[in-house]
Design a protein around this nucleic acid. Sequence first.
DNA 1: GACCAGGCACATC
DNA 2: GATGTGCATGGT
Length: 226
Amino acid sequence: MKSNKRTLHEIYDKLYAFYGPQHWWPGDSPFEVAVGAILTQNTNWSNVEKAISNLKAARVLTARALHRMPAAELALLIRPSGYFNIKTGRLKAFLAFILTVYSGSMKRMGKGDTASLRQELLNVRGIGPETADSILLYALDKPMFVIDAYTKRVMSRHGILDHGASYDEYQQMFHELLGNNIRMFNEYHALLVMVGKDYCKPKPLCEDCPLYDRSWVIGHGSWVRK
DNA sequence: GACCAGGCACATC
DNA sequence: GATGTGCATGGT
Protein backbone atom coordinates (compact mmCIF):
# COMPACT_ATOMS: atom_id res chain seq x y z
CA MET A 1 0.00 0.00 0.00
CA LYS A 2 1.20 3.39 -0.89
CA SER A 3 1.33 6.16 1.64
CA ASN A 4 0.52 9.53 0.25
CA LYS A 5 1.39 12.88 1.72
CA ARG A 6 -1.51 14.68 0.07
CA THR A 7 -4.07 12.13 1.26
CA LEU A 8 -2.76 12.34 4.79
CA HIS A 9 -3.12 16.11 4.79
CA GLU A 10 -6.54 15.89 3.13
CA ILE A 11 -7.81 13.60 5.86
CA TYR A 12 -6.48 15.98 8.48
CA ASP A 13 -8.11 18.98 6.81
CA LYS A 14 -11.47 17.24 6.52
CA LEU A 15 -11.46 16.16 10.14
CA TYR A 16 -10.32 19.57 11.36
CA ALA A 17 -13.01 21.31 9.29
CA PHE A 18 -15.63 18.93 10.67
CA TYR A 19 -14.66 18.80 14.34
CA GLY A 20 -12.51 21.89 14.90
CA PRO A 21 -9.59 22.03 17.35
CA GLN A 22 -9.71 19.42 20.11
CA HIS A 23 -7.39 21.00 22.70
CA TRP A 24 -6.08 17.66 23.91
CA TRP A 25 -5.21 16.01 26.28
CA PRO A 26 -8.10 16.44 28.75
CA GLY A 27 -6.26 16.92 32.06
CA ASP A 28 -5.23 19.68 34.44
CA SER A 29 -1.52 18.85 34.65
CA PRO A 30 1.21 16.84 32.90
CA PHE A 31 1.12 14.33 35.74
CA GLU A 32 -2.63 13.86 35.38
CA VAL A 33 -2.13 13.31 31.65
CA ALA A 34 0.45 10.61 32.34
CA VAL A 35 -1.82 8.86 34.83
CA GLY A 36 -4.70 9.08 32.36
CA ALA A 37 -2.53 7.61 29.62
CA ILE A 38 -1.97 4.49 31.72
CA LEU A 39 -5.56 4.24 32.91
CA THR A 40 -7.06 4.55 29.43
CA GLN A 41 -5.30 1.45 28.08
CA ASN A 42 -7.97 -0.54 26.22
CA THR A 43 -10.66 1.31 28.13
CA ASN A 44 -13.37 3.86 27.44
CA TRP A 45 -12.33 7.37 28.46
CA SER A 46 -15.52 7.98 30.46
CA ASN A 47 -14.47 5.13 32.78
CA VAL A 48 -11.07 6.77 33.20
CA GLU A 49 -12.71 10.06 34.14
CA LYS A 50 -14.46 8.32 37.00
CA ALA A 51 -11.17 6.89 38.25
CA ILE A 52 -9.35 10.22 37.99
CA SER A 53 -12.15 12.02 39.74
CA ASN A 54 -11.84 9.46 42.57
CA LEU A 55 -8.13 10.25 42.83
CA LYS A 56 -8.85 13.96 42.91
CA ALA A 57 -11.56 13.59 45.54
CA ALA A 58 -9.10 11.64 47.70
CA ARG A 59 -6.52 14.39 47.04
CA VAL A 60 -3.84 11.90 46.04
CA LEU A 61 -3.13 12.91 42.44
CA THR A 62 0.59 13.44 43.02
CA ALA A 63 3.50 11.08 42.51
CA ARG A 64 4.40 11.00 46.20
CA ALA A 65 0.87 10.48 47.51
CA LEU A 66 0.15 7.68 45.07
CA HIS A 67 3.51 6.09 45.79
CA ARG A 68 2.77 6.08 49.53
CA MET A 69 -0.70 4.64 49.09
CA PRO A 70 -1.14 0.89 49.63
CA ALA A 71 -1.82 -0.95 46.37
CA ALA A 72 -5.19 -2.29 47.56
CA GLU A 73 -6.36 1.22 48.35
CA LEU A 74 -5.23 2.55 44.98
CA ALA A 75 -6.90 -0.34 43.18
CA LEU A 76 -10.19 0.57 44.82
CA LEU A 77 -9.99 4.18 43.64
CA ILE A 78 -9.16 3.32 40.02
CA ARG A 79 -11.62 0.44 39.89
CA PRO A 80 -13.98 2.11 37.35
CA SER A 81 -11.21 2.22 34.74
CA GLY A 82 -11.16 -1.57 34.48
CA TYR A 83 -8.19 -3.97 34.78
CA PHE A 84 -7.68 -2.28 38.13
CA ASN A 85 -5.19 -4.78 39.55
CA ILE A 86 -3.05 -4.68 36.41
CA LYS A 87 -3.23 -0.89 36.23
CA THR A 88 -2.37 -0.49 39.91
CA GLY A 89 0.90 -2.32 39.22
CA ARG A 90 1.54 -0.23 36.11
CA LEU A 91 0.91 3.03 37.96
CA LYS A 92 3.18 1.92 40.80
CA ALA A 93 5.94 1.10 38.30
CA PHE A 94 5.60 4.52 36.68
CA LEU A 95 5.61 6.25 40.08
CA ALA A 96 8.77 4.43 41.14
CA PHE A 97 10.37 5.50 37.87
CA ILE A 98 9.47 9.18 38.02
CA LEU A 99 10.38 9.42 41.72
CA THR A 100 13.76 7.74 41.47
CA VAL A 101 14.87 9.25 38.16
CA TYR A 102 13.18 12.66 38.13
CA SER A 103 12.36 13.35 41.78
CA GLY A 104 8.68 12.95 40.94
CA SER A 105 8.76 15.94 38.59
CA MET A 106 7.24 15.86 35.11
CA LYS A 107 9.01 19.14 34.44
CA ARG A 108 12.41 17.56 35.02
CA MET A 109 11.41 14.57 32.93
CA GLY A 110 10.59 16.88 30.04
CA LYS A 111 14.08 18.35 29.94
CA GLY A 112 15.78 15.19 28.72
CA ASP A 113 16.44 14.05 25.17
CA THR A 114 13.23 12.79 23.57
CA ALA A 115 14.58 9.56 22.07
CA SER A 116 16.27 8.40 25.27
CA LEU A 117 13.28 9.44 27.36
CA ARG A 118 11.04 7.35 25.14
CA GLN A 119 13.30 4.37 25.72
CA GLU A 120 13.25 4.98 29.48
CA LEU A 121 9.45 4.99 29.44
CA LEU A 122 9.33 1.81 27.38
CA ASN A 123 11.52 0.15 29.99
CA VAL A 124 8.85 0.78 32.64
CA ARG A 125 6.73 -2.34 33.04
CA GLY A 126 3.26 -1.59 31.73
CA ILE A 127 4.22 1.29 29.48
CA GLY A 128 4.18 0.32 25.82
CA PRO A 129 4.62 2.46 22.70
CA GLU A 130 1.20 4.10 22.73
CA THR A 131 1.31 5.02 26.41
CA ALA A 132 4.89 6.28 26.12
CA ASP A 133 4.08 8.42 23.10
CA SER A 134 0.91 9.77 24.69
CA ILE A 135 2.97 10.93 27.66
CA LEU A 136 5.66 12.39 25.39
CA LEU A 137 3.23 14.27 23.15
CA TYR A 138 0.43 15.28 25.47
CA ALA A 139 2.18 15.64 28.83
CA LEU A 140 5.64 16.76 27.72
CA ASP A 141 4.94 18.47 24.38
CA LYS A 142 7.39 16.34 22.38
CA PRO A 143 7.02 15.62 18.64
CA MET A 144 5.79 12.00 18.85
CA PHE A 145 2.78 10.85 16.84
CA VAL A 146 0.53 8.53 18.84
CA ILE A 147 -0.70 5.41 17.06
CA ASP A 148 -3.74 3.68 18.46
CA ALA A 149 -6.49 1.30 17.41
CA TYR A 150 -8.48 4.15 15.83
CA THR A 151 -5.49 5.39 13.86
CA LYS A 152 -4.90 1.96 12.36
CA ARG A 153 -8.58 1.41 11.62
CA VAL A 154 -9.14 4.74 9.90
CA MET A 155 -5.87 4.67 7.94
CA SER A 156 -6.15 1.05 6.81
CA ARG A 157 -9.78 1.50 5.84
CA HIS A 158 -8.81 4.32 3.53
CA GLY A 159 -6.05 2.26 1.99
CA ILE A 160 -3.23 4.39 3.39
CA LEU A 161 -1.36 1.61 5.16
CA ASP A 162 -2.08 -2.05 5.81
CA HIS A 163 -3.78 -2.78 9.12
CA GLY A 164 -1.15 -5.39 9.86
CA ALA A 165 1.70 -2.87 9.66
CA SER A 166 3.60 -2.38 12.90
CA TYR A 167 3.32 0.49 15.36
CA ASP A 168 6.71 1.80 14.25
CA GLU A 169 5.76 1.65 10.57
CA TYR A 170 2.61 3.67 11.21
CA GLN A 171 4.47 6.21 13.30
CA GLN A 172 7.28 6.50 10.79
CA MET A 173 4.77 7.32 8.06
CA PHE A 174 3.25 10.19 10.04
CA HIS A 175 6.66 11.51 11.03
CA GLU A 176 7.96 11.42 7.47
CA LEU A 177 4.90 12.95 5.86
CA LEU A 178 3.93 15.53 8.45
CA GLY A 179 7.32 16.68 9.75
CA ASN A 180 7.93 17.42 13.42
CA ASN A 181 4.75 19.42 13.80
CA ILE A 182 3.80 19.07 17.46
CA ARG A 183 0.63 21.10 17.13
CA MET A 184 -0.55 18.97 14.20
CA PHE A 185 0.44 15.68 15.87
CA ASN A 186 -1.62 16.73 18.85
CA GLU A 187 -4.73 17.64 16.87
CA TYR A 188 -4.47 14.85 14.32
CA HIS A 189 -4.48 12.02 16.80
CA ALA A 190 -7.32 13.61 18.79
CA LEU A 191 -9.32 14.00 15.58
CA LEU A 192 -8.73 10.36 14.63
CA VAL A 193 -10.08 9.31 18.00
CA MET A 194 -13.14 11.49 17.49
CA VAL A 195 -13.98 10.11 14.05
CA GLY A 196 -13.23 6.61 15.32
CA LYS A 197 -15.69 7.01 18.17
CA ASP A 198 -18.39 8.64 16.07
CA TYR A 199 -18.23 6.88 12.72
CA CYS A 200 -15.38 4.47 12.11
CA LYS A 201 -16.84 1.50 13.94
CA PRO A 202 -15.27 -1.97 13.85
CA LYS A 203 -18.04 -3.51 11.76
CA PRO A 204 -19.99 -1.15 9.49
CA LEU A 205 -18.54 1.39 7.09
CA CYS A 206 -20.55 4.56 7.57
CA GLU A 207 -21.48 6.71 4.60
CA ASP A 208 -22.24 9.71 6.80
CA CYS A 209 -18.62 9.82 7.98
CA PRO A 210 -16.91 13.20 7.41
CA LEU A 211 -14.21 11.28 5.54
CA TYR A 212 -16.68 9.66 3.16
CA ASP A 213 -16.08 10.55 -0.46
CA ARG A 214 -18.39 9.76 -3.39
CA SER A 215 -15.44 8.81 -5.57
CA TRP A 216 -14.80 5.90 -3.20
CA VAL A 217 -16.77 2.69 -2.85
CA ILE A 218 -16.93 0.08 -0.14
CA GLY A 219 -14.50 -2.75 -0.80
CA HIS A 220 -13.71 -5.65 1.47
CA GLY A 221 -13.62 -3.84 4.79
CA SER A 222 -12.15 -0.69 3.32
CA TRP A 223 -12.83 2.15 0.91
CA VAL A 224 -11.38 1.82 -2.58
CA ARG A 225 -11.28 4.13 -5.58
CA LYS A 226 -14.05 3.60 -8.13
C1' DG B 1 -26.65 -10.85 26.59
C1' DA B 2 -23.30 -9.45 23.13
C1' DC B 3 -20.20 -6.11 21.76
C1' DC B 4 -17.05 -2.44 22.40
C1' DA B 5 -13.56 0.66 24.64
C1' DG B 6 -7.59 5.98 23.29
C1' DG B 7 -2.88 -1.73 25.49
C1' DC B 8 0.36 -4.52 27.42
C1' DA B 9 2.91 -8.57 29.06
C1' DC B 10 3.57 -13.16 28.76
C1' DA B 11 3.34 -18.02 26.90
C1' DT B 12 3.76 -20.85 23.09
C1' DC B 13 4.79 -22.37 18.57
C1' DG C 1 8.21 -13.04 14.31
C1' DA C 2 3.41 -14.27 14.50
C1' DT C 3 -0.44 -15.62 17.20
C1' DG C 4 -3.31 -16.37 21.40
C1' DT C 5 -4.75 -15.20 26.11
C1' DG C 6 -5.71 -12.79 30.57
C1' DC C 7 -6.90 -8.66 32.54
C1' DA C 8 -12.45 -5.92 34.20
C1' DT C 9 -15.47 -2.00 34.37
C1' DG C 10 -19.36 0.50 32.31
C1' DG C 11 -22.14 2.17 28.22
C1' DT C 12 -25.04 0.92 24.16
